[in-house]
Amino acid sequence: MTAIHDDHSLYVPATAPRRGAPLAVMLHGAGQDPGDFAAGTTMNLAAERHGFVVLYPAQPSSANAHQCWNWFEPAHQTRNAGDPARIAALTLQVAREQGVDIDRIYVAGLSAGGAMAALLGDLFPDVYAAVGVHSGLAARAGTDLSSGLAALRGAPREASVPREMPTIVFHGDRDAVVHPLNGTQVIEASLGADCAFESCEHTGPDGRQFTRRNYLHEGSGVRGEHWTLHDAAHAWSGGSLGGSFADPLGPDASEEMLRFFETQRRIPSHGSRAADRF
């Protein structure tokens, strides 16, 4: 069942338990809206299979003329203001209303939505248990329009202390909108440049070749995944042409993100439980 509101859409699958379901927050890219994004990613079909409630926040044109999340502006890079505060508040509101499992709330996005998802994971580890970034950028990859545009082109990023947020990344190596280097930078910002990984080459049933790296933390299993999609452009992998910026060739990013999220729970050391804010 899909409920459409002014500032978001909400999908509650028939397979979701009445209480304690996991919640995935999906952030659209520039020029998209929740309906378009849901159609292109087919995330609702994956959610039906996995029993996830899915929240699609909307960026109104009043906040950005291109309906783009303001990931590169300092006013939108703190917990207490701008897009991050609004999305986190909406997440907690929906979590309360739907009775979801507060330790299994996740956030993912495409392009600008992916950049905002990475930022939310950095700012709100007390809310989100893991992050999915498709064709996006690391938290604070840009701090103004100029540095944001440089980041899109693949400018080097200064090293920072990894936030230890479980993260799954998808990025096409022919992406001409967001340079593929950003996919590596997302993982490094999340888990550190020296995090051990296992790498495998694959060819999907549709012929798409991709490289998958699993990042391992001793004693805690796989904490990150980086899928490099060969000969893929700026589009959601395994999506539907019924929406924009979607590539029907696999792998199915929606399915794989939910599979990854199911293995991750919020880390208590990351601060107070989200329930404390209800």
Rank of each mutant, 00 (worst) to 15 (best):
L181A: 13
G82D: 07
S244T: 14
D231Y: 06
F72R: 06
I4E: 14
F278C: 00
L181K: 11
A39Y: 06
M26K: 06
A85F: 04
D7P: 07
T203K: 14
H234M: 08
H217T: 12
A138G: 05
S160V: 14
F37R: 02
H202F: 12
H50R: 14
Y56R: 03
P251Y: 04
R96L: 09
V177M: 03
T41A: 15
G192N: 05
L258T: 02
V53A: 09
A196W: 00
V107E: 01
G148I: 01
A275L: 12
P125S: 08
H179P: 02
E73Y: 11
F278K: 05
V25W: 03
A235R: 05
G51E: 08
G136H: 03
A196T: 09
E73T: 03
T42N: 15
A58N: 09
A155Q: 12
N64V: 07
L149E: 05
L258G: 01
I105K: 02
V133M: 04
R104D: 14
G20W: 03
L120H: 04
M165R: 10
R174F: 15
G192C: 02
M26N: 02
R18S: 15
P180V: 08
A58C: 00
E256C: 00
L119C: 08
A38N: 00
R49I: 03
S111M: 06
A176L: 14
A138W: 07
E97A: 12
L152F: 07
P125K: 00
P74R: 13
D231T: 11
T2Y: 14
G142H: 10
A235V: 05
G114N: 00
